[in-house]
Write a protein that binds this DNA or RNA. Structure first.
Length: 273
DNA sequence: AATTCCGCCAACCGCATAATA
DNA sequence: GTATTATGCGGTTGGCGGAAT
């Protein structure tokens, strides 16, 4: 019953990959394409489990991966996407096609978290001197970890975005949706990346993210709203494409190589967090 | 020069969900 | 419908290299 076992744990090699193993894996995937990881160790003779092969491919060998320092623009995107989505690294990575979720996660844990903590404590020391602060404002500062779970706060973030974006009408719609009670924006387990139109190619040194090849572009927002009581999902589908504002905005930012003048309001927002 | 400390990052582990017999 | 495995994801760890002492 069920599927056959993934791989027997006996004789499985662990630890760093050797160049020889990399070559074997890459040439196998070039021939057969990524996927069906279960058969990779068997067919290649690699003494690795399928998981390890997949991870090695997605995090290191996959073409189109950008390595090295993160640009300020990428940094800004990560900060804001993290505020919006929480620690949904795969979802965040889908907005930064050249970066892996692992890379982003590492960068967050080693750089950005410290950076934000530092600015947060500075912010706190300043705020302690301001007596006319509302308790809500204090919560914003002191409960960053739960920030993304608040629809209200997401709306506030979007307010900042709208100031920076020309697509205010779409933004308004999205904000309305959020204010109507949808708080599922951060739940990206079923999210599809926004760049499904991007075509991967070996020739261009770019590979389609595994998730891109799946054509079901589903919107968590709409799904959430279908369950909000009115049961009317069609209107929403006609009214707004899934996450259009956020996704297009981010894509445009990426494609233009980083427009810091547009990012600056976001930077201000991040310092608010 | 030797040792210790610290930061970075590749890889592993465990869990949740999807897929399949 | 159920049992079982595959796959994907996020959290965590361990090794390596450079900085500090």
């Amino acid at each position: 019953m069920g599927r056959p076992p993934c791989c027997d744990k006996i004789g499985i090699k662990k630890g760093p990959w050797t160049p020889e193993e990399d070559i074997i894996l890459v040439s196998y995937i070039q021939e057969h394409g990524p996927g069906n990881w279960r058969s990779v160790p068997t067919n290649t003779g690699l003494l690795r489990c399928s998981k390890s092969c997949r991870l090695r491919w997605t995090n290191y060998l996959r073409p189109g991966i950008k390595r090295g320092n993160f640009t300020p623009h990428e940094e800004g995107m990560i900060i804001h996407l993290q505020a919006l989505l929480g620690n949904k690294w795969a979802s965040i990575a889908s907005y930064l096609p050249q970066r892996t979720d692992n890379d982003i996660k590492n960068y967050w844990n080693t750089h950005l978290k410290k950076k934000l903590n530092k600015s947060e404590s500075e912010e706190r020391s300043i705020s302690e001197n301001i007596t006319l602060q509302t308790s809500a404002a204090r919560n914003t500062i002191n409960h960053r970890s739960t920030y993304a779970s608040s629809t209200e706060n997401i709306s506030r973030l979007l307010e900042g975005w709208m100031r920076a974006s020309p697509k205010s009408s779409t933004a308004n719609l999205l904000e309305q949706k959020l204010q109507n009670g949808s708080n599922d924006l951060m739940d990206h387990h079923n999210d599809q990346p926004p760049y499904e139109h991007v075509e991967g190619s070996w020739d261009h040194g770019f590979h389609v993210h595994p998730k891109i090849s799946e054509e079901n572009v589903k919107c968590d927002l709409d799904v959430q709203e279908d369950g909000d009581g009115d049961g009317d999902g069609d209107d929403h589908h006609n009214a707004t494409p899934p996450l259009t504002f956020i996704e297009k905005w981010l894509l445009e930012e990426t494609n233009t190589g980083g427009q810091m003048e547009v990012m600056s309001p976001l930077m201000e927002l991040s310092s608010m967090l």
